[in-house]
């Protein structure tokens, strides 16, 4: 009986996820659009994660450069350091660090916020007054996270490369212009494009998972905690899955 119950629950959740995603895509492209709320959410996402992304990306750039330097210098290839770091940062480190931070920071926030709104019947109150809560609460948040992730990734890449430059400069007095020249030569448009598409997909998945967990939160305070937890765990997992799929696809293209 327990197994039948579990299978039934999985099927019900799958159907709910399908309906949720379908409703999102229909309402995202159907007026009225929630421009004001989307801008508000974009500001909130940027504002919440700005400092954390700055510190983490700077440290990632510094540490990665410091770790790579001995290996490269052991066979006289220290001059390749900017090229190595820039490819690693733009292709993988930047989107991954930003995605994971955002999943923890505003994925959990979405889950908890919408979850507590569900528990305290605020979403029901919006529904019964005909104020289209799905568009207002879900569509605006998912669009904002999809839009903001690529912007944050560009910023994160820039900060990580700056951190890397500090270390490279301390090793062998490489100037900023030379460093930037090395970086620009080693990064292709495909790297930048794929990084931005990947980060937009990270944002979409974080938004959808966070909002789904909160919107379908169970009643009670434990439901809110569970929603926040589910939002973080599942969106982090989805980030790695998306990363692997895009990596496989890019390997075919390159």
């Amino acid at each position: 009986m327990a197994k039948i119950g579990t299978v039934k629950e999985i099927l019900i959740t799958t159907a709910e996820v399908y309906d949720f995603c379908k409703e999102f895509f229909v309402k995202a492209f159907t007026p009225p659009f929630e421009a004001k709320e989307i801008i508000k959410q974009c500001f909130s996402i940027g504002n919440k994660s700005f400092l954390l992304i700055s510190f983490t990306s700077l440290l990632a750039g510094v540490v990665f450069t410091k770790q790579s330097q001995p290996s490269l210098s052991s066979f006289g290839a220290e001059s390749w350091l900017p090229s190595l770091v820039s490819q690693a940062v733009v292709r993988s480190l930047g989107p991954l660090i930003t995605g994971l931070i955002c999943a923890g920071k505003f994925g959990s926030n979405m889950g908890a916020e919408l979850g507590s709104m569900r528990v305290t019947e605020q979403i029901d109150a919006m529904e019964v007054s005909g104020t289209r809560p799905f568009s207002y609460l879900v569509v605006s948040r998912v669009i904002a996270s999809t839009f903001m992730l690529p912007i944050l990734v560009i910023y994160s890449d820039a900060v990580a490369l700056f951190g890397s430059f500090i270390m490279v400069n301390s090793f062998n007095d490489t100037g900023l212009l030379l460093f930037l020249n090395e970086v620009s030569v080693s990064i292709t448009y495909l790297d930048i494009g794929s990084s931005l598409i990947k980060s937009a997909l990270f944002g979409l998945s974080i938004g959808l998972i966070g909002c789904f967990a909160g919107y379908h939160s169970e009643k009670g305070t434990t439901g809110v905690g569970k929603a926040a937890n589910t939002a973080v765990v599942v969106s982090m997992f989805s980030i790695f899955i998306i990363d692997i799929i895009i990596l496989q696809f890019l390997n075919l293209v390159r």
Partner: peptide
């Protein structure tokens, strides 16, 4: 609503 359900 029983709990008022004001948007907090």
């Amino acid at each position: 609503f029983q709990g008022s359900a004001l948007y907090d």
